[in-house]
Design a protein around this nucleic acid. Structure first.
Length: 620
DNA sequence: ATAGGGTTAG
């Protein structure tokens, strides 16, 4: 009622429906007319009625307006009806059932009223109906404007209807709506949601003017389609353009991209940009910064951001805890967990995932069990599959593979592929072939077996020297059409991301890189490095194995790092799969012989190599 | 008489 001018409405007039009438309305939601003495709407007409409808809040007011429109024979008056429908269909009320009844009663809806309904459907849990209504609109000869296209595109995004969206795109062109930048942004988002990256780009290219939001949609499209490097490039182009500048959303997206790519230098650039524009005060940006720095292996920087925050929420604490965990600071993570509680921030289920993973990464078996037991008892958070996964990992690494197997079988939730895979990894460490075979059976049952799973099983057999079984598994993989994807390692150099796969001959500086790798291999061998051949797949000669190992993607990336940076510079490599035993030894030795800090982030965690030692004591 | 687009962190 705040918005109503006191000149027109005295306070005493401003009362809602009588409780008697309200009770009846509750019983008869289809009610069309409310009899009885007129209330504060009675003398309203024209502009005053319009502004009253606009300021109406809550259903009782709208019902009263409904009654008023009927009483004054204004229900079929498009102006009042539109304003009324707008209030009913859209938030805050957003009563779609009521809006539908109104709409179906209205004799000849115009485009504006259709637009309201289509937009309302786009925000409801039945967005497909919006598309239906759009088609009905076309059938009844009402022409859509560019807003209609925008709302119905949104319906297609929400309902996931690809062909619907294509149809809309064709109509946009037919009706000449393509000059509307906002509409095209929505259209880009549609293609992006369908992972049609190149179509989204095509729309973007055809836009005559691109504002910050259009760029942000493009960047989020790049990220959804795993074209993270293009996302970084877009940031550079935006910064050098005159008409639009990156905003906080852009930075949020980019920090995520940097975290994925291990692009520390670029991430620092985004950090500076945030400082220059005052975004670094925002909680979400700070939390994203913490994640970016810790995913890039810079836990000190992450902590600096964390310390500088005036206010910290669960997300900040959890980001810090998970960052400490993945960087091998298990005890500090648990300490941070304690501090968080002292600071009066209560943990949620993701915090526990962080704490438990800290325990599993640092081999803190007792602490992990204690936390696991306390979470439902003390905090009322029942463990989910991720929590179980951490504990399975923890027990598995400690060699308690059978106990871990029993734990999985005792879970209330259905085990997923990831948890079986975790156990399979533990079987690999402890050479448990029998249990490994059982686990593979579970994965097959889930139809989730991947190349990596068979590789683990192969590793188990080959470490036993069980070559018959190795051949069997390889045959099985061939029969089932399972192919191994080559692992990929990335390294950042001067703000560019360089990508390597095993035996990769595509890099422009390939000759130098291979020469450098040979040189490194020789030097390391002098220092006592012996290539680890146990985990290789084939039953091939020792010579052959050593050759196959020497061109692993992480070694190529490291060689490139040694080649392109001055002595003493840290080498940071990200790998999409797990680092292998041999590359682990290689990096460890290199950190001593070449006196370089080497940081490798693999699929699971960080490995910090310094002076011939690694932050994780054992290889995994 | 007249509405719309991106990110929501771990």
């Amino acid at each position: 009622m705040k918005a109503i001018s006191p000149r027109r409405f005295s306070v005493s007039n401003c009362r809602c429906l009588s409780s008697h009438a309200a009770a009846r309305i509750n019983h008869h939601p289809q009610i069309q007319c409310i009899p009885g003495p007129t209330n504060f709407t009675s003398h309203l007409h024209g502009d005053a009625l319009i502004s009253f409808i606009k300021s109406a809040s809550g259903k009782p007011h709208l019902l009263e307006i409904h009654a008023h429109l009927i009483r004054k024979f204004l229900f079929e008056d498009a102006i009042f009806f539109s304003a009324f429908l707008f209030r009913v269909a859209l938030p805050p009320l957003h009563d779609l059932a009521y809006a539908c009844r109104l709409f179906s009663k209205f004799r000849k809806p115009d485009f504006f009223q259709y637009n309201i309904m289509i937009r309302a459907y786009g925000m409801s849990d039945s967005p497909g109906n919006g598309f239906q209504l759009y088609q009905e609109m076309l059938r009844s000869g009402v022409s859509p404007n560019s807003l209609t296209s925008s709302f119905v595109t949104n319906c297609c995004i929400k309902s996931g209807s690809f062909f619907g969206g294509l149809q809309i795109h064709a109509r946009i062109l037919r009706y000449g709506h393509q000059s509307d930048g906002r509409l095209l942004t929505t259209l880009m988002d549609f293609y992006s949601s369908k992972e049609k990256y190149s179509d989204a780009c095509k729309v973007f290219d055809e836009m005559s003017h691109r504002d910050t939001i259009a760029w942000n949609v493009l960047i989020s499209c790049y990220m959804r389609n795993r074209r993270t490097r293009d996302a970084l490039r877009a940031f550079d182009i935006m910064q050098s353009s005159y008409d639009c500048q990156p905003d906080d959303v852009t930075c949020l997206l980019l920090l995520q991209a940097c975290a994925n790519l291990n692009a520390l230098a670029f991430g620092e650039g985004v950090h500076r940009y945030c400082e220059e524009h005052g975004f670094d005060k925002a909680m979400n940006i700070c939390n994203a910064l913490i994640t970016m720095y810790s995913r890039c292996g810079c836990i000190e920087k992450a902590f600096e951001v964390f310390k500088g925050m005036t206010e910290k929420d669960v997300v900040s604490w959890t980001a810090m805890i998970s960052g400490l965990a993945s960087n091998g600071y298990g005890r500090d993570a648990i300490e941070a967990f304690r501090e968080m509680q002292n600071a009066g921030v209560s943990p949620d289920y993701q915090t526990f995932t962080g704490v438990l993973s800290a325990c599993s990464h640092s081999g803190l078996l007792d602490e992990g069990r204690m936390v696991f037991n306390s979470m439902s008892k003390e905090f009322g958070i029942p463990p989910n599959i991720h929590h179980y996964g951490c504990v399975v990992d923890l027990m598995g690494r400690a060699g308690m593979v059978n106990e871990a197997y029993n734990l999985i079988n005792s879970m209330k939730v259905r085990p997923d592929a990831t948890i079986w895979r975790t156990l399979l990894g533990a079987c690999r460490i402890h050479g448990q072939a029998d249990l490994g075979e059982q686990v593979i059976e579970h994965l097959i049952e889930l139809k989730a077996q991947e190349a990596g799973d068979y590789v683990l099983l192969l590793n188990i057999y080959s470490s036993h020297g069980d070559w018959d079984k190795v051949i069997n598994v390889r045959k099985m993989m061939k029969d089932r059409g399972i192919q191994t994807n080559p692992a990929c390692s990335t390294i950042e150099f001067r703000g560019e991301i360089h990508e390597f796969v095993a035996n990769d001959f595509s890099h422009p500086r390939k000759t130098e890189i291979f020469e450098m790798l040979d040189e490194i291999n020789q030097q390391l061998r002098i220092a006592g490095y012996v290539a680890e051949t146990m985990s290789e797949l084939h039953n091939v000669g020792v010579e052959e194995k050593q050759i196959a190992l020497s061109y692993h993607s992480e070694k190529l990336a490291i060689a490139f790092g040694v080649l392109s940076t001055p002595p003493g510079t840290s080498i940071r490599v990200a790998k999409d799969l797990r680092i292998c035993v041999d590359c682990h030894n290689f990096a460890k030795m290199l950190s001593a012989v070449y006196n370089r800090e080497v940081v490798i982030r693999d699929r699971n965690r960080f490995h910090h190599f310094r002076e011939g030692r690694c932050s994780c004591n054992d290889y995994w």
